[in-house]
Structures are given as structure tokens and as C-alpha cells.
Amino acid sequence: MSNMGTEILAFILTTSGWVLISATIPADYWKVSSIDGSVITTATFWSNLWKTCVTDSTGVSNCKDFPSMLALDGYIQACRGLMIASVFLGFFCSIIALVGMKCTKIGGSDQSKARTVGFAGIIFILSGLCSLSSCSLYAHRVTSEFFDPMYVAQKYELGAALFIGWAGSLLCILGGLIFCFSLSDSFTTRHPGYAYRATASASHVPSNPRGHAKIMNQRPPPESSSSFRVHHFDKNAYV
């Protein structure tokens, strides 16, 4: 695959990952729990980074926003900060990568564009790691509460938003790695090969340097042509 095709593939992966991460922040089901009746689910409790809600069997939801940012649990504040940082990093890196790609007409020389793409790849990896850390921290808190026998409050399970965030994080990291690999391919110097055509006289010279010197030091044999041959005739040759 050409270098340009590699950069386009990496840009598609990172942009798709950034879109998934951006969709994860306002998603509803970061954690979910339900109360089942004899026939149908009577109520579904779910929560995200901004509010906690309950939905009854008729589909009506009652939500309560978190009252104060300073009064939140530490893990929710950390998850908010990491997700927002991931979205901002991914947005600016998309612009930087678009400038540095070879398919665009801006960005300077090929080496400067390659450096720009490599820098964007590193920041994309950092963006994916921020989102991955946020979703993993939230999931760790949910699972630790679920398996804790001493925890008597409402227990939740992992919601769909966490899986979307993990998928977006992996796409960003994968695309960033491809950008970094395309940077190394851009700096590989390729020298054109020039075929040396030996002359007809040199092609018969042996490869041994001693034999070559011996042949060069030898004198050419005397001419054997009939025009230079001296004939000695006897005195009775024409008799």
C-alpha cells in the first residue's frame, strides 16, 4: 500500500474513533440496572457522567442532574476531564493530520508534512489513551461495587456507552500508530540503481587483479598476417 493510501486509512480510523468518543460523552447508559416484575421490566435505572435517571415500563424517564461539580465523586470528575481532553485533542489532531497528509496541497515540503503527520499520530494515541482510561476507570468502579458483598446500595452493570468509548479509543490508537509508521516510511531514502555496462573489451578481463596485471604486462604477439610475413627464397627458386 502506498504512503498516501496509508495516511488516508489512518485518517479514516482516527476520525471514526473521534466521532465515537464524542458520542460517548452525552450517551445515557454508562451504567444500567433494572427491576424486573413477573412479566415485564418495571423500572430501569441508568446513569452517565451528568445525571442519573429511572425509566418505567411506559417509557417515561425521570432524571436528576448532579447538583454540583465539586460535590461529585472523584472518579466521575476524572472521567469527565479525561473525556473532554480526548475530544479536544482529537479535534485539533484531525486538522493537523489533514494539513500534513500528502493528498492535500498545503503544509510545505514532504519532510515537513511527514513530521506534521507523525506529530498528529502521537497526539491521536494520547487522545485514545485518555478516553480508554476514562472508560476503564468508570467500569472498574461499577464492577467493584457490583461484586462487593458489603455494598448495599443499588448495583449497576456496564452500559453500552462504555463499549462505544472503548471502540473509539482503540480506533484512535490504531490510526495514530499507522500515522507514526507512515512517518518512518517517509524518511527512508531510496537511491535509484544505476546499472554499469562494461565494455566488450573489459568483459573478458578476469576478476583476479593479479591475473589482470599479468595480462596487462604481457606484450602483444607478433603479427601473423601474410602481408607482414618475410619470405626467404632460395637461389634456385625460379629455376
Rank of each mutant, 00 (worst) to 15 (best):
C53Y: 07
L49P: 01
I25E: 09
S33G: 15
L70D: 09
C63A: 03
D73K: 07
A23Q: 04
I21Y: 03
C53S: 02
A27S: 13
L20S: 04
F45C: 00
A43I: 10
W30F: 11
G37L: 12
C53I: 02
G37W: 14
V32W: 15
T58K: 04
F66V: 01
D56Y: 08
D56T: 02
S33K: 14
G59W: 05
T52P: 02
L72T: 02
K31M: 14
Y29L: 15
S68H: 07
G37Y: 14
I40T: 14
V39F: 15
L20E: 06
T42D: 08
L70Q: 11
Y29M: 13
A27F: 10
T55E: 13
A43K: 11
I25Q: 07
A71L: 10
T58G: 03
T24M: 08
G74Q: 09
A71T: 10
G59Q: 03
W30M: 06
T41M: 02
I21G: 01
K51W: 09
A27Q: 12
W50S: 09
Y29A: 10
S38N: 15
Y75V: 06
S22L: 06
S68E: 10
Y29G: 02
I76A: 01
P67A: 04
N48S: 01
P26Y: 10
T24N: 04
P26L: 13
L49D: 02
G74P: 06
V54G: 00
D36C: 11
L49G: 00
V54T: 11
F66P: 00
Y75P: 02
G59A: 01
S33H: 15
L72H: 03
D56A: 01
V32D: 13
K64C: 01
V54D: 02
I35Y: 12
K64N: 04
K51R: 12
G59T: 01
D36T: 14
P67T: 04
D65A: 06
I76L: 12
D65K: 06
L72K: 06
T58Y: 03
G74T: 14
I76P: 00
N62Q: 09
D73Y: 04
T44I: 14
T41S: 04
V60A: 09
D36W: 13
S38M: 14
T52Y: 10
C63K: 02
S38C: 11
F45R: 09
D65M: 03
Y75I: 06
G74F: 07
L49C: 00
A71N: 09
P26T: 12
F66G: 00
L49Y: 04
S68Q: 07
T24C: 09
